[in-house]
Amino acid sequence: MLNIPCPYCGLRNETEFHYGAEAGVGYPDPNTLSDSEWAKYLHIRANPKGWLPERWVHFAGCGRWFNLWRNTVTHEIGPAYLPFTTQPKAPDPDSNRDRMEGAKA
């Protein structure tokens, strides 16, 4: 179970959170987008193998949304940051190398 650092409450179990998919995908101006661009906003999100900035909400805690770097392969947790703040750099891509290799096999 993930141990997630809520920026307000500190480290808490994953069961207290809800997932909100890729972070940094702002609500676009709907009327400037073509149908396919709008459909892309609705349905397409990045799904890389490795580090991904994600949105999480501390649903069973303070109820606040925040962003979090998470490694989709190793489930390592990187830094958390608040919406509308500068995104911290992605953690070292080579960390936990043997689990990354395991995933490739």
């Binding site: 809800h18 909100g20 609500y27 949105r55 109820g63 606040r64 949304w65 919406p83």
Partner: peptide, 13 residues
């Protein structure tokens, strides 16, 4: 309620 909060916090602060 979660839906309202999501928009208020992440899109329209």
């Amino acid at each position: 309620l979660a839906w309202l909060e999501e928009w208020l916090q992440t899109e329209w602060p």
